[in-house]
């Protein structure tokens, strides 16, 4: 079975992560109910005619995908796979509101056409004239992870050599405000703002000087707090990795009551460097690839940003990173990386 390597990692987020060559050196503190991403200069990636039509998620997705391909020096991937929890919610709300306010009359198709979840994958394929395998996942906080698992499967089974894989989410206006309202009504709810972003990666079956190995990953629709430790142990055993070999543990902490899952997992380790990132990225269904981007950068640069420290010390020589994310006690994912 072929191994899987990450060749490039790109993220557009609430932080200066896209245009900057630095690695989370200048941090923007996030506060409020929702925080928009820091949008790049889209004109570098998208023609003006297309820019006018595209909603934010599509613009972010296409730009991040384009840079991920460029960084990996790939012009035509063998597959394009995306993940999104809410899809093109901006155009969805736009079309729905036009139906409601105009009583189903005088509607134009543009927003409807671009409201489908596969719009980003389609626009990337269209831009590249890429006729290869193309797929889109939408499973809440596992949307990106499923896209990555599909890529892993394609590479392992030798159905592809280079796969473009990414996740994107846009805030939209209406449903996000109601989701926030419900969240804030719950005293133990998510303690970071809702945000948005796009993260894209080129994964390959070929090892290069700069690549980071994706040892393995696993997803679970549900796990109880009682069995989370065993699930992690089983995952590591399956991959012949001992708990003591893991240098860094990156969790998707967002301050809600379900952070207990991360606490239980961290108990398994002694003196491990614990990092977190959702205070930097905000929370959204595809926030977890921000963590994967950071993990790639940590292994690639051998540098850990101060702002990511949750507990423990920064050590040198970091080789194996474990990422763990879940959302409200559901949709758990483990990702194991090595350099």
């Amino acid at each position: 079975m072929k191994k899987v390597y990450i060749h490039s990692a790109v993220t557009i987020s609430a932080q200066d992560t896209f245009d900057s060559d630095g690695f989370l050196n200048e941090i923007k503190g996030l506060s409020g109910k929702t925080v928009a991403a820091r949008y790049p200069n889209y004109k570098d990636y998208i023609t003006p005619a297309n820019l006018r039509r595209m909603a934010e998620g599509v613009k972010m997705g296409v730009s991040a995908a384009s840079k991920a391909l460029k960084d990996a020096e790939i012009t035509q991937p063998d597959a394009i796979i995306t993940g999104t929890g809410m899809g093109c919610i901006d155009d969805t709300e736009k079309f729905l509101n036009a139906i409601i306010s105009n009583d189903e009359q005088f509607l134009t198709p543009t927003a409807f056409i671009q409201s489908t979840h596969n719009t980003v994958g389609a626009q990337i394929a269209l831009g590249l004239k890429c006729k290869a395998y193309n797929n889109t996942y939408s499973q809440a906080a596992l949307s990106f992870e499923w896209a990555l698992m599909d890529a892993q499967l394609l590479l392992q089974q030798e159905e592809a050599e280079n796969v473009l894989v990414g996740g994107y989410e846009e805030l939209g206006k209406e449903i996000i405000s109601y989701r926030r309202m419900m969240e804030d009504a719950d005293g133990l709810g998510i303690q970071v703002p809702y945000s948005e972003g796009a993260s894209f990666f080129v994964v390959s079956s070929e090892k290069t000087e700069h690549s980071v190995e994706l040892i393995d990953m696993e997803v679970y629709s549900s796990i109880s707090t009682e069995s989370i430790q065993d699930s992690l142990k089983q995952f590591l055993t399956k991959n012949d990795v001992d708990l003591s070999e893991i240098d860094v543990f990156i969790s998707g902490r967002n301050g809600d009551v379900f952070d207990s899952y991360y606490d239980l997992t961290a108990e398994l380790f002694e003196n491990i460097t614990q990092l977190h990132y959702k205070h930097l990225s905000g929370e959204f269904y595809t926030a977890s690839p921000f963590g994967l981007w950071a993990a790639y950068e940590i292994l690639y640069r051998q540098e850990i940003p101060e702002a990511m420290i949750f507990k423990g010390e920064i050590k040198s020589d970091n080789h194996i990173i474990l990422l763990y994310n879940q959302f409200k006690g559901r949709d758990h994912s483990f990702i194991l990386l090595k350099r």
Binding site: G87, T116, H117, N118, G121, N134, N135, T136, Y137, S138, Q139, L142, W146, V219, Y220, S221, S222, I223
Partner: peptide, 12 residues
């Protein structure tokens, strides 16, 4: 009662 690999595909 399926708890492991659960997902949704949305390609129109």
């Amino acid at each position: 009662r399926i708890h492991g690999l659960v997902t949704t595909i949305s390609t129109a």
